[in-house]
Write a protein that binds this DNA or RNA. Structure first.
Length: 568
DNA sequence: ACAATATGATCCC
DNA sequence: TGGGATCCCTATTG
């Protein structure tokens, strides 16, 4: 070691942890090994100042007294501690962060998954491995007459028949990128089964025919900021309603792109952030000819679809001044709708008697509720809250004081990402299969991946994890096709279409634990040289490998052929 | 390789 | 009650 000019300058002493610098090349290490690192002894050594690079230096005086030589000379050594500091809690003795593709939690913080102190994600009983944690709520049997009537109605249409649903086995993936900001919502065309609509943070509306890969249109002049929701016009599915954080509801012809604003909550323009109204939740009620929208001040407004004009008064449905993030009309009971918001509640309402405080039920959550949906028969409720729990209420006519089940699942990131929302599989007659993206990553053969989870909410079992080694970004937006075995995902600026492989294409799975392994079909995007990345056009990126194989998904052909029911 | 940043709920005083 | 600091696995750009 070269000596420092300690005659003229105070000696610089740098204390640092025993070296753990060499990145462990094998990322397949198990957790026990990693946790053992905490106990490594701390050595101190003198070193070059250059080694400060990348460390968090702490000027320390702890060695002052222990160096009598320098004291005699009257030169106080400057001791810089390079002891590794946990970037989460700033304490020494442990570190948080990625070791290869495995993330190590800070042991001083509550579990990042279930939020309970005393353990980390690694040892969390709810750790996503083969099944999610399920906290069953007591099942109360209510024999109210209304339940009986309702169930008789259901029996009539045959929805109570439990049928095996389809879970992806192995899938292909096609990918497209035409949005210039992160994707915020997706919507399948109800009748033309190859059309997918997408909205982004900039307010752009994409129309993509994913069978004819290159056929897409992006309308950029409809909204000026986040497009939060798209709903098809039940009278004419060539037109859509869209709600945006610019405070407007638009009505757009998908063919021509001709659009008109039906409602503008900021008629006087920008008067500052305290008065700017943004529309988040939206849904249509075909029976009552209503479009329901709700804003960031807790207020719902309605539009009459026949006249395209306001209907009724605005009503406060969530805590004053808080954002309402979701609305959903009951598919079978036209007068019922569900709302959820930042006041930690989901609420059931009757449109006929809508006034502040008149909700039929208030479902309390630990934190903000990202979404709340009725099941397809309208009897169950599914909510996603950023307290990292998916909740299911089995019957809206039962006791709604507590959910029937709480499923611990990682989806609590609050910035930079579109909020995660668990959504029902609209094809599942048993009304239990749900899809939701996962925030927290897992180490899959050395890659930190964020799967898209299929969860059987009846058992809490994780029945499928959809992922691809080439897709390393988080997929908060997911939509299952209303008729086909197709999943659409929005991940950052990209959109993925996942489709099951044919029987002949299945490859042996290395790891039986993982139910879904995804094809190597999705290729990593290469950034186009010269492309700024924010351009509205000329930045399209397609991966057509899926289609080149001649496996073009067809509405008829795809039906139930290759997907298997597993774990059932 | 690293820094900057957009961005939103929450916590704390 | 409100403004400002804080925040654990981002994605992207320079």
């Amino acid at each position: 070691m070269p000596s420092l000019p300690n005659q003229r300058f105070p000696r610089i002493v740098i204390a640092r942890d025993s070296d753990t610098e060499e990145e462990s090349s094998s990322s397949e290490e198990e957790e026990e090994e990693v946790e053992g690192d905490d106990n490594e002894e701390e050595e101190e050594e003198e070193t070059h100042v250059e080694k400060l690079k990348g460390k968090t230096p702490i000027v320390s005086t702890e060695n002052e007294d222990s160096d009598p030589k320098s004291k005699r000379k009257g030169k106080t050594p400057i001791t810089i501690s390079l002891k590794k500091v946990c970037k989460v809690c700033k304490k020494t003795g442990h570190e948080a962060g990625f070791k290869g593709a495995t993330y190590i939690d800070c042991p001083m913080k509550p579990c990042f998954l279930c939020k309970v102190p005393g353990h980390t994600t690694m040892t969390c009983p709810h750790r996503i491995a083969t099944e999610h944690g399920v906290v069953p709520a007591s099942r109360r049997n209510t024999n109210k007459p209304v339940t009986y009537v309702f169930e008789r109605q259901l029996r009539h249409i045959g929805l109570l028949v439990k049928a095996s649903f389809t879970i992806p086995d192995q899938v292909h993936c096609a990918v497209v990128r035409y949005h210039s900001r992160r994707v915020t919502c997706l919507e399948f065309h109800p009748t033309n089964c190859n059309i997918l609509l997408s909205g982004d943070k900039k307010g752009q509306l994409g129309v993509w025919d994913y069978n004819k890969v290159y056929e897409k249109v992006v309308y950029g002049n409809i909204h000026s900021c986040i497009l939060n929701n798209i709903r098809f016009n039940p009278m004419n599915d060539g037109t859509v309603y869209a709600a945006s954080s610019d405070g407007t509801v638009s009505f757009t012809d998908l063919e021509t792109g001709v659009s008109e604003p039906l409602m503008n909550l900021n008629p006087n323009g920008w008067q500052g952030p305290n008065s700017w109204r943004m529309l988040y939740g939206m849904d249509v009620n075909p029976e009552r000819n209503l479009v329901l929208v709700a804003d960031n001040f807790g207020v719902i407004s309605m539009l009459d679809m026949r006249s395209n004009s306001r209907s009724g008064d605005a009503v406060l449905i969530h805590k004053k001044g808080t954002k309402v993030v979701g609305l959903h009309c009951n598919p079978l009971q036209p007068d019922l709708f569900l709302s959820c918001g930042n006041d930690h509640f989901a609420r059931i309402w009757d449109v006929r008697r809508l006034e502040a405080g008149s909700s039929l039920a208030s479902l309390q959550h630990g934190r903000v509720v990202n979404s709340a949906y009725f099941s397809r028969s309208g009897s169950k409720i599914l909510t996603t809250s950023i307290d990292n729990r998916i909740r299911v209420w089995d019957s809206i006519f039962g006791d709604l004081d507590s959910p029937s089940r709480e499923i611990v699942h990682s989806h609590d990131f609050n910035r930079h990402l579109t909020p995660f929302r668990a959504e029902w599989d609209p094809k599942d007659p048993s009304e239990s299969l749900v899809v939701i993206g996962r925030y927290i990553s897992e180490n899959y053969n050395g890659a930190a991946l964020h799967p898209i989870d299929f969860i059987d909410t009846g058992s809490g079992q994780l029945v499928a994890e959809v992922m691809d080694p080439n897709i390393t970004t988080i997929s908060p937006v997911n939509k299952l096709h209303p008729k086909e075995d197709i999943l659409a995902s929005g991940s950052s600026r990209s959109i993925f279409i996942w489709k099951p492989k044919e029987e002949s294409e299945l490859v042996p799975e290395k790891d039986e634990r993982k139910i879904v392994l995804c094809g190597s079909d999705a290729k990593k995007f290469k950034r186009k040289s010269g492309g700024k990345g924010e351009d509205d056009s000329g930045d399209d990126d397609y991966d057509t490998s899926y289609y080149k194989k001649g496996k073009s998904p067809s509405c008829k052909g795809a039906k139930g052929r290759t997907m298997k029911s597993r774990n059932r």
